[in-house]
């Protein structure tokens, strides 16, 4: 389930503004933003500042009242915070419709829908009418529809709300898989611990504009080496190398060594990217790979392609043993 998304340009917002109604107040205005592929982007901001509006614009749910959005990939998926069960379909029937909308054949859509419902712990509800589902189970259907067709752009508006613990962890995992496969994932969640330290870029929505958010404490992001290009007035906070030393990002973290803990049964290629070698951890704790930051993306792709399960991606804290300059 981790097809590499083909090379494409970034999703680009140029001078984008949005208001509800022809004379309503502007919720967002003059937003210039670039969202490159393979990025996990967290959107922060107080209630009612326009986080959801930004997400809806990026996902293509709403059209901008002014400005342009370009480069949205063919496969785009959106998960709303609350999914209405007021549709006359079964869970599986609805997912098959949504799969077909995203270009899958009926047979493939059915297979993947069943698999995703099982992954999210809702396999038993496949034949249940949406109107009879609990809020959490309906939310699982909303999450499943977004992951069916391996979207190149995934937009999650508090998608975790209402999910049980296991399903939340599964969604975290699915997000990491999509990012590793080259997809852009944009999310809002009220829980600051959600994917804490994993976001490559943190955006802050305030006063009708979008700016760089606070840097997250914690691990080095899984995606390193990708440069942020942000023309225009909006500067986007990013944890990737920052060309402006005044902003404190002068260290070339692209080559900082990274520890990846993963587990899987399928054999891996003999030579791994960056010359990484697996090191078994005790107690079934998986396998530890140490790799230079520049090669971490390639290694993650190899692992995910082999259906390995990536547990953690974190900064090398001890002396560097990978190829990094640290």
């Amino acid at each position: 389930m981790s097809t590499i998304v083909g090379a494409r340009g970034p999703v680009r917002l140029a001078g984008v503004g949005r208001r509800y109604g022809a004379r309503g107040p502007w919720v967002l205005r003059g937003v210039d933003l670039e969202l490159p592929e393979g990025r996990l982007v967290r959107v922060t901001g107080a209630n009612g500042t326009g986080k959801s509006t930004l997400l809806r614009l990026v996902a293509g749910v709403d059209a901008p009242a002014e400005g342009r959005i370009t480069g949205r990939p063919r496969g785009t998926a959106y998960v709303p915070e609350r999914f209405p069960p007021a549709l006359p379909f079964t869970a599986l029937g609805h997912l098959v419709h949504l799969g077909r909308l995203q270009g899958l054949t009926t047979a493939v859509a059915r297979t993947r829908a069943t698999r995703w419902l099982e992954r999210l712990g809702a396999g038993g509800y496949a034949g249940t009418a949406l109107s009879e589902l609990s809020k959490g189970s309906a939310q699982k259907v909303a999450v499943a529809q977004a992951l069916l067709a391996e979207p190149g752009l995934l937009v999650l508006d508090e998608a975790w709300t209402g999910l049980d613990e296991a399903a939340r962890a599964e969604l975290d995992r699915a997000v990491r898989e999509r990012v590793a496969a080259g997809a852009t994932v944009l999310f809002v969640d009220h829980d600051p611990r959600r994917l804490a330290g994993e976001a490559d870029t943190v955006l802050r929505v305030a006063d009708g504009g979008v700016g760089p958010g606070p840097r997250e404490q914690g691990t080095v992001p899984a995606r390193v080496g990708a440069k942020a290009v942000e023309p225009g007035p909006v500067r986007v906070g990013t944890k990737t190398p920052d060309p402006d030393p005044a902003r404190g990002g002068a260290k070339p973290s692209a080559s900082a060594p990274v520890r990846i803990v993963a587990s899987g049964t399928r054999p891996l290629p003999g030579v791994l990217p960056g010359g990484a070698a697996g090191e078994a951890l005790g107690d079934g704790g998986g396998t530890l790979f140490r790799v230079g930051g520049a090669d971490s993306d390639a290694l993650l792709r190899v692992l995910l392609d082999a259906s390995w399960h990536v547990h953690r991606v974190e900064a090398e804290t001890g002396p560097a043993t990978g190829g990094g300059r640290g």
Binding site: A59, G60, V61, Y78, L98, Q102
Partner: peptide, 11 residues
């Protein structure tokens, strides 16, 4: 429903 329309619009 609006949320269903949003999901379809993205897809």
């Amino acid at each position: 429903p609006a949320a269903a329309r949003a999901v379809v619009a993205a897809a």
